[in-house]
Each structure stands twice: as C-alpha cells, then as structure tokens.
C-alpha cells in the first residue's frame, strides 16, 4: 500500500503540514517496497484557485491509496480523492510523518 503524508519538509522526521491543498511537500511511503519518497509541492503557491484538486491529482498520479493529513481537504479535493478511491485520515497536524504513520497503523486517526 502507498500512503501519502502532507508535510512541511522531506523525510520521516518532517512535521505534518495540517493543510492539504497548499501543503509544501508530499511524503509518500510505499509499504511493499519499503521505500520513502518526497515530492516538492511548493509550486502550488503560484495557483490562485483550485490548489486542492491540483494536489489531489498528484496523489492519483502516484497511485496512492491512503492520505494522512491535518485538517482535511476541501470539497473539490475531496471529490477527486473519493473518485480516485484514496482514503483520507485526518488529525495528524501536530506530529511528524513517522509519528503520523504509527498512529495510522494503530488506528488512532479519524477517517474523513
């Protein structure tokens, strides 16, 4: 399974970015390959509108199945994620990516 985290930096120790659409980075963990990658999403600052759907699109291109974030995506982004069958978990705003992953595994995050 591929799990994406909205993050303020690259890697496991980065803090989770509570925002979805305008998140600065997307950290993606591929459980099968045991591989962690980071996508720099800072260009999203240049979008006036539709940041959420655009970031969602990246998750679909990366074939992510689960998203872990802070406050949760807005309406348009939620539509894309739902259509793309990405499950969203929220409430990881105050943690690092590693802690958020542990919480997700223990079932401690809320499904959006």
């Amino acid at each position: 399974m591929k799990i994406a985290f909205t993050a303020k930096g690259p890697g496991w120790e980065a803090s989770v970015d509570p925002r979805f659409g305008r998140t600065e980075y997307l950290v993606i963990f591929d459980e099968e390959k045991d591989e962690l990658t980071t996508i720099d999403n800072r260009d999203i600052q240049n979008e006036s509108h539709g940041a959420g759907p655009k970031t969602s699109q990246i998750l679909l291109e990366q074939k992510v199945q689960v998203l872990v974030t802070g406050n949760g995506p807005g309406g348009n982004a939620a539509t894309v994620l739902e259509r793309g069958k990405v499950e969203t978990y929220i409430g990881a705003g105050d943690t690092t990516v590693r802690e958020a992953y542990d919480k997700f595994k223990k079932g401690e995050l809320t499904k959006f």
Binding site: D17, P18, R19, F20, G21, R22, H49, G70, N71, G74, G93, D94
Partner: peptide, 12 residues
C-alpha cells in the same frame, strides 16, 4: 468563501 477557508487552513 475561499479566503476564509484559506484563513482556517492549518489552524490549531
């Protein structure tokens, strides 16, 4: 609207 959603995004 959009600006207030943006204001709220990421708040504790």
């Amino acid at each position: 609207g959009c600006p207030v959603i943006s204001s709220l995004s990421g708040a504790n």
